[in-house]
Design a protein around this nucleic acid. Sequence first.
RNA 1: GCGGGGGUCGCCUAGCCUGGUAGGGCGUGGGAUUGCUAAUCCCAUGUCCGUAAGGACCCGUGGGUUCGAAUCCCACUCCCCGCGCCA
Length: 420
Amino acid sequence: MLDPKILRENPDKIRKMLNDRNVDFPLDELIKLDKSRRDLIIKTDELRKKRNEISIEIAKRKKANQDTTSLIEQMQETSQILTDLEIEQTQTESNYTKLALTIPNLVDESVPIGKDDTVNREIKKWGKIPQFDFKVKDHINISQSLDLVDLERAAKVSGARFYYLKNDLVKLNQALIQYALDFLSDKNYTPVQTPYLINHSSMEGAIIAQDFEDVIYKIEGDDLYLIGTSEHAVASMHSDEILEGKILPLRYAGLSSCFRKEAGAHGRDQKGIFRVHQFEKVEQFIFSRPEESRKEHEQMLSNVEEFYQKLEMPYRIMILSSGDLGKISAKTYDLEAWMAGQNSYREIVSCSNCLDFQARRLKIRFRDRTNDQPQYLHTLNSTLVATTRTIVALMENFQTKDGHISIPKVLQKYLNKTII
RNA sequence: GCGGGGGUCGCCUAGCCUGGUAGGGCGUGGGAUUGCUAAUCCCAUGUCCGUAAGGACCCGUGGGUUCGAAUCCCACUCCCCGCGCCA
């Protein structure tokens, strides 16, 4: 949700954003709805004022045993007009909110403008791309020969894009989670394992409606949705709250399984565990003062870099262009890890600043002193590790000549071995 | 799942029976005063509209009855206690 003040005072800023994002949106209709919504508030407020005045007068007269017939007649009349107006107001309000909830976030000035991912800008490369003196295998190959993944039976039991992890890959999955939690705990993040099912209003606060269809599973018969990431559950954790300014920034290390429909991804990354419906993720989530969110964003990214450097993982950092940017994000960095089996960089981390966009939808505010006007805070989120994708990169980059996987130093103590 | 009790403006609580401007305490912020970090007193402390003056809304949520609902009625929801089931 955008600040309605921008809508009123600077609609061109929004028009530019829609253009930059290459999004169709009936902005004029939203402006009109905002206007009529406010007009109706003024009208109904006036009527309620009148009603309150008469009501007080009736109470007074009743106490004094005076006649109230004409006043009650007036009340009846006023109430009738008010009821009609209220119906109109509720309708307008709901139309406004419905539409306002679908508008995407503003785009940060530092974001490259362009229609799709071809315009994403690389800003950094780290690490040496591994060279092999043998025929490189992809992760599917490796996991099959080491009996680490069973895709066929998963397909039988659950369908495409599901998997059974087996043997040491189960432990590697856990090792990544544990390493990530330790890593963030050391940086004073509060670990939080979230509910995996959340209700509609929480989900709608965290994402935009279209995404419900594309990525979110719904539980039949209940007002519950499977989270696509712990971000959804952590963001809504403080909904409808006014936080004390002094506790900011709030930094959470969210842990959860993640569930995604991956609608529209048919044909892409069809095989293996790169693109799946379920995986585990440790996520950085920050509630920040507005003036500090850009700094926090950079800090999150540098945490991510440190994490993957310690994992000895070659990567590059991209800034997503306006056309590729998620609707709720104002600016997103992706970390793309080198994947030897595919001979290319692939996305494994997404690091976003949502500014006050989610906070407005979820009504999360803060203030420094009791009598201050509460203001919306900023929310930021970034993958630290999404297990399956990082496992793919580890398998492919750390493969050995004899078909095994060597384990990066930082993970060895969690796995209790140096090779799989 | 069944039975019982509950949800009041950050926290605690009054008001509900008997409908008529939601009151108090604590905490917090600001101020006054006192030669101490204490005490006392005053003001403020939910949301929305409005530049403001001001006004409207707010008693878990949504309906209903009524001129008027925190209060009466219905449904839902969450919490607590007991029973049942259960990793």
